[in-house]
Amino acid sequence: MFEARLLKSSILKKVLEAIKDLLTQATFDCDDNGIQLQAMDNSHVALVSLLLRADGFDKYRCDRNVTMGMNLGSMTKILKCAGDKDTVTMKAQDNADTVTFVFESPNQEKVSDYEMKLMNLDLEHLGIPETEYSCTIRMPSAEFARMCRDLSQFGESIVISCTKEGVKFSTSGDIGSANIKLAQTASIDKEDEAVIIEMDEPVTLTFACQYLNYFTKATSLSPQVQLSMSADVPLVVEYRIPDIGHIRYYLAPKIEE
């Protein structure tokens, strides 16, 4: 038996919003520790890794490991049926071929359940080693979203260059070029609004704008985003979801040939 209850369905709605442009289907792996999802996008240049810890749920029970292959389009349709203040419970029997979503309004006057067929997905899982990155940049997630949106008007790629002076985001295209420089926040009063740069070695890497824009669909999950970079390895864009877990996006850098 698997049962996971969240007081706010909005978290699950936002998680789905954050992955549905990249993935059409995904496997939710549930065990004692919580719910995990790892999947590559169709073109296999980006990877999404989601963790929702068991202790972040209002109620969590998982007697046996459960693997639920879900069509994210169908899941989106179902979650649209939940009010933002509704609680949501996901339930599945052991070895079941369906999952049930139960939505309850705050006053318990409306209870709805939606059963969805599960899919047998044969998806590749990649082993991502614990990595020490040369640069990590923390910044307000809304600022990162704004920059990606602004720069993607000019070019298809964004060059991210991190040095001890700060971090520079650049692009160029038919109409011209654009550069945005961010310096580390001088005095941190509000952590959510700070830009914090940790750099062991300077790094410059190029990434596809389109994917960075997909990642920023997670903005509403967290006030801050963390970018981790090392030479010649994928960028990690991490949104920490308060009290429950994180969503991480990995993106392979572009390479000049």
Partner: peptide, 14 residues
């Protein structure tokens, strides 16, 4: 010409 590597070129398949 820019090329984009695949995830699998960086991380091993489990």
């Amino acid at each position: 010409v820019e090329r984009q590597d695949l995830m699998k070129e960086f991380y091993p398949e489990l």
